[in-house]
Amino acid sequence: MKSKYFLFVWMLGVFCFALLYPIPFIPALGDKARVLYFHVPTAWVTVLAFLLSMVYSVQYLRKKDILYDYKAASAAGLGLLFCILATVTGAVWAKFNWGAFWNWDPRQTSIFLLLLIYGAYFALRSATESEETRAKLSSVYAVLAFITVPFFMFILPRIVESLHPDPIINESGKINMDRSMLMIFIASLAGFTWLFIWMLRIKIRLAKIELSELD
């Protein structure tokens, strides 16, 4: 119970450091590089939530326990939230660095695809009344969506060159970051992941209460 206060203090610290601590000079980015502390962790949580949702969906299909469906939907719901956050932070950064909020960079296209999948998933869920049918249909859809995503890794790089800055761990496998930046970045990554897990656990607890009331 007390852990949430600790999480609050941790995130507060991360935000203060991320916004105020001086960062080293980076060509063509400068202070705009600070978006890294927020954009990358939210994007990471989006992918994590997508993965978790698919794992819970498979679990549901194997065990037919309705709780897994609640878990999958909770993970997907939080994933959608973080996906929107990652898209918005990315778009704002793109406005100041590339000159437009949206220009169909491969990275933007792939996050747009994730938004579409999450949107379709919830559209399907709200269009089905019976609880068991809803669980089955949405799990099947989650699995189907998950297996089509890898094709993007082959298609997207060929369409246009990406202008997106290097991933944190670049092609040579080295972490190309200043020491103080790296510390803040890792703290932020840990903080956002923790925030996600904390929110997910609350949602799952709520689902359990709803289930026990139904019985």
């Binding site: 579409l116 049918t133 089955k136």
Partner: peptide, 27 residues
């Protein structure tokens, strides 16, 4: 097969199939 079991059968069809078809359509 998915939407035939759900309640709204018309409008959901392109919505659900488009994200899956996007890699295919692009190529």
């Amino acid at each position: 097969a998915l939407i035939s079991k759900s309640n709204s059968k018309g409008s959901l069809y392109p919505v659900l199939s488009f994200p899956l078809l996007l890699p295919l359509l692009l190529s």
